[in-house]
């Protein structure tokens, strides 16, 4: 008998009770190959991501308040990013950048994080292939094969990556991070794979101005695709031709 089928069928009842209580385990198998999800649009747990989807973000800087760091705190909480008080070596997956045009005095504030490029330079330069782009456009570090050479940090135009400078403890189960490897915004890939949205987007919508819109750029019916089609938006350092998945409105 197929070992997989056997595993699933014989342990169903026991495991369902057990696992249903554990946060982060959204999928509950009810029979071999059949899985129920709490999120309607999610892909099946056993299914690979495809390039039919291109996850992206649209940030409306007009709604982003100067001094508000709700997105940053949400990210830190979600991914277990702490501070040691050594700002120069502490990782930052998302940060707020204040812009001021010296010629006009115009001021803008916006969140900056991994821009999830379609042509990511970090992926190009990574010697081991640890930096990679998922089929759905999310740029990640496979920490299992990252040797910590930091070439990706040299190559990233957005200063989006951080190196873990010291040993970590009590990491979040869904966000493994460790000393000697490079990390950056994962677009909360663990949430996306369950049909959720990134923590920063959620926090911005719930607690702040709702400046961040997340969605599938490839789906013409999605809110984000409609918005980028209707309103002018721009990619940071578009001159490099990297086609980032994060777009900005109002700058």
């Amino acid at each position: 008998m197929n070992i997989d089928t056997e595993n699933r069928e014989s342990t169903n009842t026991a495991r369902r009770n057990f696992l249903a209580g554990i946060a982060g385990m959204a999928g509950v198998s009810i029979a071999s190959g059949v899985t129920l999800f709490s999120f309607a649009e999610a892909k099946e747990a056993g299914e690979a991501v495809t390039s039919k989807v291109r996850w992206g973000m649209l940030i409306d800087t007009n709604k982003c308040e100067d001094g508000c760091t709700k997105c940053v705190s949400a990210c830190n909480k979600e991914n277990g990013i702490g501070t040691t008080g050594r700002a120069e070596t502490d990782p930052q997956w998302i940060r707020k950048v204040q812009l001021r045009d010296p010629k006009t005095g115009n001021q803008t504030s916006l969140p900056m994080m991994c821009q999830h490029c379609a042509e990511p330079p970090c992926v190009d330069v990574c010697p081991t292939g640890a930096s990679f782009k998922r089929a759905d456009g999310i740029v990640l570090v496979d920490k299992h094969s990252c040797i910590g050479c930091r070439y990706c940090m040299m190559a990233c135009p957005y200063k989006a990556r951080s190196f873990v400078h010291e040993a970590l403890e009590d990491q979040k189960s869904h966000a493994p991070r460790g000393k000697g490897t490079v990390e950056s915004c994962t677009l909360c890939v663990h949430r996306i794979d369950k049909g959720g949205i990134p923590a920063c987007v959620e926090a911005c919508a719930d607690e702040a101005g709702g400046a961040m819109l997340f969605g599938d750029l490839n789906d013409p019916k999605s809110e984000i695709a409609k918005r980028v089609a209707k309103y002018a938006s721009r990619q940071i350092r578009a001159d490099l031709g990297l086609n980032p998945g994060v777009r900005y409105q109002g700058i």
């Binding site: 930052q92 707020k96 204040q98 001021r100 045009d101 900056m112 957005y158 940071i236």
Partner: peptide, 12 residues
Amino acid sequence: LFPGMEVKSSFF
């Protein structure tokens, strides 16, 4: 990142 602009952030 933003040519011609003055920039400030917590990440230097």
